[in-house]
Each structure stands twice: as C-alpha cells, then as structure tokens.
C-alpha cells in the first residue's frame, strides 16, 4: 500500500466519520463544525485525485462560504433544538432498510463492473489546463451558471426582506 493509498483511506475514513458525527449532532453548530472537517477532507481528496484548483475552490466556496452561511443562519435564528425528535422510527427504519439495499446494490455493481479494480493513475490536471478546458468547452454553461447565481442572489434577497412576519400578522 503506497503512501497515496494510505492518505486516501485515512482521509476517506475521516470524511465518513466526521460526516457521520455531523449528521447525528443535536446541536446544529456542532454539526456544521464537524461537516467542515468533512469538507476539508474532501478538498484533500481532490488534491490527491489530481484536481488542485477544485481543491482550492472547494475550501473557499464549500468550507468557507457555504458552511459560514450555515453557521451564520444557525446563530442568527438561535433556535432551540433540544425538542427535536432526532431519529423517528417511522423515518429511520425505512431509510435504513433502503440504505442497506442501496449499499448492497452499489457494492455489487462496483464489484461486477470490469475496470473498477484497476488502480487510478497519478495525473494532475493543472489549474491552467483546467481553466483553458472549461472556458474553451463550457463557456456558455459557465455564463448560464453565473446567471443562476445572480437569480439566486436576487431570490435570497427578496425572501429575506422580512415580509414573512407582516403576512403572518395579516393572516392572524
């Protein structure tokens, strides 16, 4: 087992463990912090799998922006989560059953597909290559995505204008 493989399994284990801890936390701040670890691990994994630019973006956008946004909302709302029913039986039992089937199917598919047992090569897609590739082949999609982000921005702003409370009063 090479060093890369070791790092892969280590980070993989870290990601799964921290995600598992994150999704079982009652306190949402804790959950977000644990998930942060998971995303950092993902970024490491990206780097390992030859995508340095994506790793950097992942840290900036995912671990940075998105998780901070989560944290921000959680702290802003300051909700009392102690009353939450954590894992109702009617939800987790079917989820567990189907999850088990899903895992079994997934493992079987992976094992039965030829080519998946071949070790991945060590190749790095440099940021320059990646950028050129994206802007040569996917420039239209990039523009559309930027438009999507703009729409999301406008939507978030208009939702966050605080009309909710007024309407509640109106209806009450």
């Amino acid at each position: 087992m090479s060093l890369y493989a070791f790092i892969f399994y280590l980070t993989g284990g870290l990601i799964v463990a921290s995600t598992a801890i994150a999704i079982t936390r009652r306190h949402m701040v804790h959950a977000v912090i644990y998930l942060l670890f998971s995303f950092f691990g993902t970024a490491v994994l990206f780097y390992l799998l030859g995508a340095p630019l994506l790793a950097a973006l992942w840290v900036i956008i995912y671990a940075g922006a998105i998780m901070v946004l989560f944290l921000f909302i959680v702290m802003m709302i300051r909700t009392d989560t102690t009353s939450e029913v954590m894992f109702p039986l009617s939800q987790w039992l079917p989820a567990a059953i189907f999850g088990a089937i899903y895992l079994a199917v997934g493992v079987a598919v992976v094992l039965m597909t030829p080519g998946t047992e071949v070790a991945l090569p060590m190749v790095v897609g440099s940021p320059r290559e990646f950028a050129l590739y994206v802007f040569q082949n996917h420039w239209l999609s990039i523009e559309i995505v930027s438009l999507l982000l703009l729409v999301a921005l406008v939507g978030a702003v208009s939702l966050g204008r605080g009309r909710g409370e007024e309407q509640t009063e109106d209806e009450a």
């Binding site: 890369y4 892969f8 799998l49 094992l111 998946t116 047992e117 070790a119």
Partner: peptide, 11 residues
C-alpha cells in the same frame, strides 16, 4: 497508482 476506482466510488 493510488487506489482502485471502485474504492473511490464506494466512498
């Protein structure tokens, strides 16, 4: 050589 693709998919 890192790991088999199957392991990545399983993760």
């Amino acid at each position: 050589m890192i790991v088999p693709f199957g392991h990545v998919l399983m993760l």
